[in-house]
């Protein structure tokens, strides 16, 4: 089912959703948001693309396979726990870099919880897209 309105709006919405999902993930440590919500938003972007332009197009636009996203996300989440081991601390203890400011973005505060959130973000997006794509493919067959 092709709809010109959907196809045209998707062109604008997909990149907007991707950027918004990244922003939501970043602000999630102390404010509403976070990796899970961000991941869901990212998957919404590509799910929308899959609905409007077909699954193959969406897969192509994603560039990596959803499985790769899951694995990479888990890998990043795992790595985020490791720095604490170097300091002879409990696994997953959160470590932070000193705060600094950037012109456009304002105060930036980086630390291991953000790395963990990015891992969650990728894993959730990968899982949701995997489920969505496999359901779509069944539908097309």
């Amino acid at each position: 089912m092709k709809s010109i309105i959907l196809t045209q709006t998707t062109k604008f919405l997909t990149p907007a959703f991707v950027i918004l999902s990244l922003f939501i993930t970043y602000r999630g440590h102390n404010l509403p948001g976070g990796g899970f919500i961000g991941g869901l938003m990212l998957s919404t972007a590509f799910a929308l693309l899959a609905v409007s332009d077909g699954v193959e197009k969406a897969r192509h636009a994603l560039r990596v396979s959803p499985e790769f996203l899951i694995a990479a996300g888990l890998c990043i989440a795992l790595i985020s726990g490791l720095p604490a081991l170097l300091g002879d601390d409990a696994f997953m203890k959160s470590l932070w870099l000193p705060e600094f400011s950037l012109p456009l973005l304002g105060k930036i505060h980086l630390g291991t919880p953000i790395v963990f959130d990015i891992g969650v973000f990728m894993t959730v997006a990968g899982f949701t897209l995997k489920v969505f794509f496999s359901l779509c493919r069944e539908e097309e067959n």
Binding site: A84, D89, A90, F91, M92, K93, S94
Partner: peptide
């Protein structure tokens, strides 16, 4: 065997 019970507070 050495210490009976080990406890790890994850994330401290």
């Amino acid at each position: 065997i050495d210490r009976q019970i080990l406890v790890l507070d994850v994330g401290a």
